[in-house]
Amino acid sequence: MSGLTLEVRGLSTHFDTRAGTVRAVDGVSFSVRRGRVLGLVGESGSGKSVTGFSVIGLVDPPGRIAAGQILFKGTDLTKLREEELRRLRGNRIAMIFQDPMMTLNPVLRIDTQMMETVFAHTKVSRQEAWERSRDALGMVGIPSPEERLSSYPHQFSGGMRQRVAIAIALLHRPDLIVADEPTTALDVTIQAQILAEVQTLAREYGTALIWITHDLSVVAGLADEVAVMYAGRIVESGVVGEVLDRPLHPYTHGLIGSVPSRNKRGSKLRQIPGMTPSLVDLPKGCAFRTRCSHADAACAEDPPIIEPGPGRSLRCFHPQLESVA
């Protein structure tokens, strides 16, 4: 238990809409250890972002955490009151968002937005809060942080803004950072720089990271473990090298097969047929069966979670043993 920063057990987050209950997250379990990176992979609408927001306690109505436990260093976050959650947010658990153009408040200066985060969790002088903000900016590789502190967000480029957001997340040296597709909106070169920096920082401070993405190449380079989500469930998880080299779930197969660089030049790009199913009143059984070439009558029942190897889990009746072509 000691090294476990976060353990999520059977988490279900539902949205009650007029059309019915959307089971955005449906019985998800995973854990992240100190200093390790978990890649949470899936298509749009697979529930990966909602999982992230559930962990940090920012699921807004009509959404609600319907079941499960979120154990953060042994404390169940689903049992905490809003004020107790607020004290953890930005302090012990931080979050980085997808679009750096939208996350910073356009009309407040960077120093205001950083120092208020310091003041929200500690009683320090303005001078000290300012120094901490400056150091955090320097740490994420922003040149001349003293001057940049008095700038406004629109005076930064996208990559620089994301660095500012990361610096804000790092202000209190959190135990856990939930990063929701933080590099998706950035140039590839900036993406690579930020990935490298985040990885170093996480290692250095023993921060656990949940990296939500749809980009398998990012996961391959950054994560230690990976969990693949489909229609609100984790269909396969394990150590990154194993899952990506020997995927067992047909969906993971499909995902890996869809990466363009893996295909031979001139050959047709592979794709997974069909679309992600609507999550409103999803029928019983494997949600992927309508798009799966291996599906049969058995798939109409919920597949049990099996453990094909140490640290690996799988939800499928038909594990694929041959390697991805």
């Binding site: 947010r89 930005g90 931080a94 979050m95 996350t103 356009p106 208020e116 985060t117 929200a120």
Partner: peptide, 13 residues
């Protein structure tokens, strides 16, 4: 808007 969610994620009151 996203900036409100981010502000809440920072733990602001």
């Amino acid at each position: 808007l996203e900036y409100v969610k981010f502000a809440r994620a920072k733990g602001l009151s």
